[in-house]
């Protein structure tokens, strides 16, 4: 058994943290883009667009993220498509994030008073124009706090990528634990690093929420 000093453990964990951050960013940005597209489909009032979007959201919100990761990683490989842990984790987390962001943002869009839709329709704006110039700018103000809040869920969600072999913070913790047999120390440090990533975001989301309530 090699001799691991505390410093080596910390150094390796911090090195692995970058992959947690990168995966979180991919999921969040990718999920944001897909979520925005879904939001347009979901609020378009076109029936045949709305139903598949609803099913998509129901599937990704109603099944465990772990199951989605397994489906992408083990399931898709059976069809002859090579799937790396990177791709499976990135894709599954992106789709999972998009489903939640769509629902959060839909709530914000629906919070915009009906009169805004009617007024913009009465000046002959198309649906896209209504969203772009009238609804979204107002919905965005309310959306910021819950969106920042959800980013914490995304960071925590990336921990599951460790299970399909993606080396990020949690996986690095497991590997270090296997090498050092100091689970208490290693997992405490892992938890501490996650806390340092998530707490500022949680705190910021709460502050934004408070500020919004004052403005109302």
């Amino acid at each position: 058994m090699s001799d691991f000093s505390l410093w080596i453990i910390v150094k390796n964990l911090i090195w692995a943290t970058q992959w947690t951050v990168i995966l979180s960013l991919i999921a969040f940005v990718g999920g944001g883009i897909v979520g925005m597209i879904l939001l347009f489909l979901r609020t378009s009032q076109v029936k045949w667009l709305e139903v598949p979007t609803k099913l998509y959201i129901e599937f990704f919100q109603g099944t465990p993220l772990l199951m989605q990761l397994f489906l992408f990683f083990f399931g898709v490989a059976l069809f002859g498509i090579e799937v790396s842990p990177w791709m499976a984790a990135g894709l599954a987390l992106t789709l999972w994030t998009s489903a939640f962001l769509t629902e959060i943002w839909r709530g914000c869009v629906e919070a915009v008073p009906k009169g805004q839709w009617e007024a913009s329709a009465s000046v002959a704006m198309s649906y896209i124009e209504q969203m772009r110039y009238v609804i979204l700018p107002q919905a965005m103000r309310i959306a910021i706090a819950p969106t920042v809040g959800f980013s914490v869920q995304v960071i925590k969600g990336t921990a599951l990528a460790s299970i399909i072999g993606f080396v990020e913070l949690t996986k690095a913790g497991t590997m270090l634990n296997n090498a050092t047999f100091r689970p208490f120390l290693v997992y405490s440090l892992v938890a501490l690093i996650y806390f340092c990533l998530c707490f500022p975001l949680s705190w910021f989301a709460k502050r934004l929420e408070g500020r919004l309530n004052v403005a109302r």
């Binding site: 599951l160 299970i163 949690t170 405490s188």
Partner: peptide, 23 residues
Amino acid sequence: VELIRNTPFIVQLFFIFFGLPAL
């Protein structure tokens, strides 16, 4: 509350299952 809400469930689970036996 803040510790639990800002760490992943899997890390909490590993901490309880693998970490606590050390204590």
